[in-house]
């Protein structure tokens, strides 16, 4: 394992009980402190792979190594952000955000203080005592992000976090997320099927082939976020070229 990688996938394969082969011989090392995106055609096993890294699904073959050790399930070094938010409808925003810490047995006052801090950071101050159904989709996913941040895991796994969020909200949320992650040296593994999103957010794009999924190409967008306003980046030639390249690559699987 090279020094700067934090998650290592060794020959990961997954065959579902139904006989469907979702993943085959997936080998990859995710660099520490970077935002890597798993991008691929729908049904290529992106989410399955993310859940295997999260320890939520067992791989049929192969191993996942995190921080130099093979994993056998979920662990405190990884926090998950879910596509459907997975918020408890009976609990307030405050309790939802503190839930990861609650499960770890952190004393109530302490965990609520931490939760309040992150609620503020994701921009939901004032909504602590609201319930999830009183919030919009975008706000709910901010709760999901805050919950993942409270447990202070090295690695944050995000499963299409913006897919149930409308376009305007999504752009603002993407900026905010980059801001939040910038100074924390978090390693983020991000699943999406949106090429623009991958190109805009990622340090590294891992293109997966169609089923059974495996790594077909690795792209480094190398987009300079500092000092530029987001709309400038979206008109950047480099950015548009990358989107074009990825599209050409993915088109193969569509016909």
């Amino acid at each position: 394992m090279s020094a700067d990688s934090i998650v290592k996938l060794k020959d990961i394969g997954k065959i579902y009980d139904t006989g469907v082969e979702a993943l085959k011989d997936v080998n990859f090392e995710f660099p520490v402190g970077k935002l890597s995106t798993l991008l691929g055609p729908s049904g290529c096993g992106k989410t399955t792979l993310l859940k295997i890294i999260g320890g939520l699904i067992d791989a049929t073959s192969g191993e996942v190594w995190v921080n130099g050790k093979p994993i056998s399930g979920p662990g405190p070094d990884r926090a998950f952000v879910f596509q459907d938010f997975a918020l408890m409808p009976w609990a307030t925003i405050l309790r939802n955000v503190a839930f990861g810490l609650e499960l770890r047995g952190v004393p109530k006052d302490e965990r609520l203080d931490i939760a309040r801090k992150y609620i503020k950071e994701v921009g939901l101050e004032g909504f602590e005592s609201n319930y999830p159904h009183q919030l919009s989709g975008g706000m709910r996913q901010r709760v999901g992000l805050a919950r993942a941040l409270t447990v202070d895991a090295d690695i944050i796994l995000m499963d299409e976090p913006f897919s149930s969020v409308d376009e305007q909200t999504r752009r603002k949320f993407q900026e905010d997320m980059l801001d939040l992650l910038q100074n924390r040296r978090k390693t983020v593994i991000f699943v999406t099927h949106r090429i623009e999103e991958a190109a805009y957010l990622s340090d590294l794009i891992v293109l997966l082939s169609a089923r059974p999924g495996s790594v077909s190409q690795v792209i480094k967008p190398d987009i300079d976020h500092s000092g530029k306003c987001p709309d400038e980046i979206r008109r950047d030639k480099n950015y548009l070229d990358i989107i074009d390249n990825i599209w050409r690559e993915l088109k193969v699987y569509l016909c």
């Binding site: 999260g54 979920p74 926090a79 998950f80 997975a86 009976w90 990861g100 499960l103 770890r104």
Partner: peptide, 23 residues
């Protein structure tokens, strides 16, 4: 997905039952 969320944050079987399933 709530059960999965619980697992991802390290909940044990008892916590999954009392903090998620029952509620």
């Amino acid at each position: 997905s709530l059960v999965e969320m619980g697992h991802s944050f390290g909940a044990n079987r008892y916590q999954i039952f009392t903090k998620i399933l029952i509620l």
